[in-house]
Design a binder for these strands. Structure first.
Length: 502
RNA sequence: CGAGGAGUGGCGCAGCUUGGCAGCGCGUCUGCUUUGGGAGCAGAAGGCCGCGGGUUCGAAUCCCGCCUCCUCGACCA
């Protein structure tokens, strides 16, 4: 830890800052199980808000929720060759179904007689088990499209976990759709990409580049993969969401066919798409500061915190006023809901509470004490900027709502400015290498590439930078002009986005 | 899997070199005073020093074996 009270500053050790913040803001703990985390109520509240917003968007675009088992027969994984290659190395496997007491009294052991006939893989993703079901549900063009989402946990046995960003078990949503035509599946993949981009930018205040993954980086088993990519404060890219067009790969692997209007038997076209609790990590990485969590108002568990100041008889009057304010602020509403408001009545000093709520990312802090009460005033401070402003008590609800709106746009603008300041174009290999060397190096580097996997691999080997995506819309019109590959000098049709990634 | 580091009250750590009453800070509990940027004083509770073995009159400390975690690599839909 940086010191007893605060957290390690970002400039001193960014990784440590992130870990300190997650702990001190009470978002999550490391579990006793390696690679797994305990998501604490304050962190889970952010995830619930994300779920709520995304779930609405999925339903508005025609999807329904369902739930499939977490255990997948091992044989299912081998049905799609690329898919198993992509996940085999990180699967947890269930081999037995019973424990028993050891005969020597040393404790509990796995009962060797309870071995499963077919081992079960704990889902790293659910394509295989879901497509097994779809086979039974889809016979005719009338059964299509199938547009199902599930909220679930998945397990990927990662070698190097990091709270929220990469854990062995994580929470996510995964959408799995089936369509009659390639074009329809393509439209679906892009619709979801749009949902993800809108969620990142409008809810999380995180500007993202949306684009298509290179062959090296695409999902195992996909025809092609779309992604949204964000930039952190330490100049690395975070893949924040992906939407895959699976073509007919899984339909062929699981033999899912339908009779078309013309009476022909055809394999269906598929998509899958997901975002995970990694979004919580992304949120932290993009916005938070040396005083703790900075949460965008739409996703902040506490949008306004009222801190009553005073003691004895005077405190009673202050608490009365605070209760009245809380009621008005909630009723005021913002963004189509109540303003999530809390009065901090803990027996702690005001200074402690100020710091504590900054750590936990409360958007607006409202101070009220005897001094204010006499004048009919209170003091407001936004989590961004933080300067105190005086406000009439009668106006506090309206002012709070106004400040939430300012914070929501302010955070987005700040993150966008950071991304723009750290997005650059280079045209020579020396410049390119230099861009990724040293402590503060990185950011998005927009450069020409000859389109081959070999070149991408060589670039990654020498610089650790990978192609984050080929943007759907050029970030700058000139990016769409042809040029020469940064490494090989061969012809390139357009610039692509490179970065070191989390 | 490779290289480093660390396991000692709830949390963070010192003590180990040179064996001799298990300590400190934070937190917790009690009381009094305090309250506009992490309050003060007084008192209290709380530990099988990661596990197993060895050396010794005596081991947190020395020796051997094992386990776990962290950091940095490698790996990574």
């Amino acid at each position: 830890m940086g010191n007893e009270l605060g957290i390690t500053p970002r400039g001193e050790n960014y990784s440590q800052w992130y870990t300190d913040l997650v702990h001190k803001a009470e978002l999550a703990d490391h579990s006793v199980v390696r690679g797994c985390m305990v998501i604490r109520p304050h962190g889970y509240a952010i995830w619930e808000l994300m779920q709520g917003a995304l779930d609405n968007m999925f339903k508005e675009t025609g999807h329904v929720n369902a739930y499939f088992p977490m255990f997948i027969p091992k044989s299912f994984l081998s049905k799609e060759a690329e898919h198993v290659d992509g996940f085999a190395k990180e699967c947890a496997v269930v081999t037995h179904h019973r424990l028993k007491n050891a005969e020597d009294g040393s404790g509990v052991i796995v009962d060797p007689e309870a071995k499963l006939e077919e081992e079960l893989v704990i889902r790293p993703t659910s394509e295989t088990i879901i497509w097994n079901s779809y086979k039974g549900w889809i016979q005719s063009w009338r059964d299509l499209p199938v547009m199902i989402n599930q909220w679930a946990n998945v397990c990927r046995w990662e070698m190097r976990p990091r709270l929220f960003l990469r854990t062995a078990e994580f929470l996510w949503q995964e959408g799995h759709t089936a369509h009659a035509t390639y074009d329809e599946a393509e439209e679906e993949a892009l619709t979801i990409l749009g949902v993800y981009k809108r969620f990142a930018e409008e809810w999380m205040c995180v500007p993202v580049i949306d684009g298509i993954k290179s062959e090296n980086e695409k999902f195992a088993g996909a025809d092609h993969t779309y992604t949204i990519e964000a930039l952190t404060q330490d100049f690395k890219a975070i893949q924040a969401g992906t939407s895959h067009h699976l073509g007919q790969n899984f339909a062929k692997a699981f033999d899912v066919t339908f009779q078309s209007k013309e009476g022909k038997l055809e394999h269906v076209y598929a998509t899958s798409w997901g975002v995970s609790t990694r979004l919580v990590g992304t949120l932290i990485m993009v916005h938070s500061d040396d005083n703790g969590l900075v949460a965008p108002p739409k996703l902040a568990p506490v949008q306004a915190v009222i801190i009553p100041i005073g003691r004895g008889e005077k405190l009673e009057a202050v608490l009365d006023a605070a209760a009245g304010m809380e009621k008005e602020i909630r009723a005021q509403g913002w963004d189509g809901g109540i303003i999530r408001t809390k009065i901090d009545k803990r027996d702690k000093s005001p200074g402690f509470k100020f710091n504590d709520w900054e750590m936990k990312g409360a958007c607006i802090r409202i101070e009220i004490g005897p001094r204010d009460l006499e004048n009919g005033k209170c003091v407001l401070a936004s989590r961004l900027g933080g300067e105190k402003i005086e406000c009439d008590i009668k106006d506090v609800a309206a002012k709070t709502a106004e400040m939430l709106s300012e914070l929501q746009t302010g955070l987005y603008n700040q993150a966008l400015a950071h991304r723009e300041a750290n997005t650059s174009r280079v045209d020579t290999w020396d410049e390119f290498k230099a861009a990724f060397e040293g402590e503060k190096a990185g950011g998005f580097i927009v450069a020409h590439w000859d389109g081959t996997s070999e070149t991408e691999e060589q670039i990654a080997n020498e610089t650790k930078a990978t192609i984050r995506c080929i943007p759907r819309e050029p970030l700058d019109p000139a990016d769409a002009e042809p040029g020469k590959c940064i490494l090989t000098g061969k012809p390139s049709t357009q610039r692509v986005v490179f970065a070191k990634a989390y």
